[in-house]
Amino acid sequence: MKPGIGLMWLVARGAALLLGSAIPAHVSIMGSTSVLPYLRAASAAFTEAHFPYRLTLGGGGSIAGLVEVSRGRVDMAVSDIPPTADWTHGVPLCHQPLGRQPILFIAHPGLVTDLSRGQLKNLLRGRIDNWSAVGGPKMPVTVVSRPLASGSLRVVETQVLDGHRVTPKAIVMLSNGAVMAAVRESPGGLGFVESGRAPTGVTVLGIDHRRFDVSRPEGWPYYAVPTLYWRCPGNDSIRTVAHYLASQPFRREFGLY
């Protein structure tokens, strides 16, 4: 190859790389942070098995993912909540559920171990502000919540709070892990996380005498359904990735049932 042609090829390849169009095997995914650990593991396995496919992952929350995928800024979104026209501007999205992910209610150790749904609702809404009102020690309640863009917050507001809002006095943490850490370290802490395993250092609360059990996850009533979304109809790469991510048996290890 002449040096001139070689140089032109390099320049064209560089430009194509910058534009991203020359790599149909590159798929970007953004959205819910709760399934990121699973997606990281699955994308590594996928990349190894399907060279030269390349997956890039980002958080930002369910709604951010839906907004970005409908605007064409990422290839796929992962969201705990279904899209609305507000976020997608009517762009039709195809979807593929990844599984069901339990939403666990967690408290700082030594407070209570069980609550009724009504008590939980009143605690999260800020109507009960001391643990002594629900059989715990005399200690103010510190609700730890997620930002408005969080899908798990929407699920909690729909399934537990009957459409009401979490108290505006709640501390807002930007990720699932940050909620867990804040509840673990704050005396009086109460929060919710999407997790298929019992988190350590906190009390996982039973609700209405039901406890989450890894061996019998179907007995637990509160679930989010993280789902992959992409602009319809999507290309082969996107469909291949979606099918792969939604069918891996090791999803259970990451709390996706």
């Binding site: 709604i63 976020w87 930002p147 408005l148 501390i171």
Partner: peptide, 18 residues
């Protein structure tokens, strides 16, 4: 007491609204 500033709230809610 916990709180928020103009910049932190921009960061928290920026992803929510197109």
């Amino acid at each position: 007491s916990p709180g928020a500033t103009l910049t932190t709230q921009l960061l928290t809610d920026a992803a929510l609204y197109p």
